[in-house]
């Protein structure tokens, strides 16, 4: 059986880069309106055993007759057998996935893409900034930090959603906090029953005083939100090469072949989706790029 480890986009753990491996849905966890987390187990035990991923990587999830979508892996890299994906309904594929239940079979190929540079950030303070479904690709980073807490300094998670009911993984925040991680949450809209913060994610920076010499920022969310996250981080003198963004543009082949995900000189499926701001600055604010 194909049982290569994750060495890169050409040799995904699931074998031939273009051939999906069947995986069974073992659990479905509703997260928010239109968002669910699916736990998958490969049908072929050899594939399951060989499968490894790094925080920030994604799989192509395939439904025969419908299509494929790039979906980040949202689970703990140290437990690759319990592979989880948090899916928000956007179009055909995600809509079809949302109708599936435990026992259903999905095609999986991957993992693809690069990863959040958790090793480069060792010894640094971390600011993890997520908006909406953007927390999904960052959750593996959080799990990694929980397992290697002593490797990092101050860790702050700034997390935002549209409504309180849209916040992802709220049941885990207390556990994260118990590991000396500051979790600050905000929503764009709320009624008077909500006792937390209201306002967009970037304004959570106002209360932070990062030490620019030892701070790394990881952010994922709507691109317009990330623009302002970068702006706030730069205003606090965090170096451009220490601000990492996950650029989740549309993808097709995921193996640097079709060009669908090209972003300036990079193919986001291979060189990304995680890129440091100094690499993308020339294109990041260009309209319609």
């Amino acid at each position: 059986m194909n049982s290569t480890l994750a060495k890169g986009h050409w040799s995904p753990a699931t074998g031939h880069p273009m051939v999906p491996q069947p995986a069974v849905i073992t659990h479905v966890q509703p997260e928010a309106h239109g968002v669910m987390t699916y736990t998958l187990g490969f049908r072929d035990p050899a594939v399951g055993e060989a499968y490894r991923f790094h925080p920030g990587q994604f799989n192509m999830l395939y439904l025969p007759g419908i299509g494929e979508a790039a979906i980040s892996i949202s689970s703990d890299p140290a437990e690759p057998a319990a592979l989880r994906h948090t899916v928000r309904i956007a179009g055909n594929v995600t809509q079809a996935i949302s109708r599936m239940e435990a026992g259903g079979v999905i095609g999986v190929r991957g993992p693809y893409g690069n990863s959040w540079p958790v090793d480069r950030a060792v010894g640094n303070d971390l600011i993890i900034v997520a908006g909406g479904i953007g927390l999904a690709p960052l959750r593996p980073v959080i799990y990694h930090v929980l397992r290697h807490r002593a490797d990092y300094g101050k860790v702050t998670i700034l997390n935002g959603a549209r409504l309180p009911a849209d916040l992802l993984y709220p049941q885990e925040y207390d556990d994260w906090r118990s590991h000396d991680i500051e979790v600050v949450v905000t929503v764009d809209r709320a009624d008077e029953t909500w006792k937390g913060r209201v306002g967009v994610v970037p304004i959570l920076f106002y209360a932070l005083r990062p030490d620019p010499k030892r701070t790394t920022v990881f952010t994922c969310g709507p691109e317009i939100m990330m623009h302002f996250v970068v702006y706030e981080a730069l205003a606090r003198r965090v170096p451009k090469d220490r601000i990492y963004l996950s650029l989740e543009r549309n993808m097709k082949c995921a193996v640097a072949f079709c060009g669908r995900c090209q972003y300036g000189p990079t193919f986001l499926c291979k060189d990304g989706p995680v890129l440091s701001y100094d690499r993308i600055e020339p294109f990041f604010t260009v309209e319609e790029f």
């Binding site: 309904i89 908006g131 764009d188 317009i224």
Partner: peptide, 9 residues
């Protein structure tokens, strides 16, 4: 409304 589906994420 940056979290709206298909409008920016």
């Amino acid at each position: 409304d940056v979290y709206a589906v298909g409008k920016g994420e």
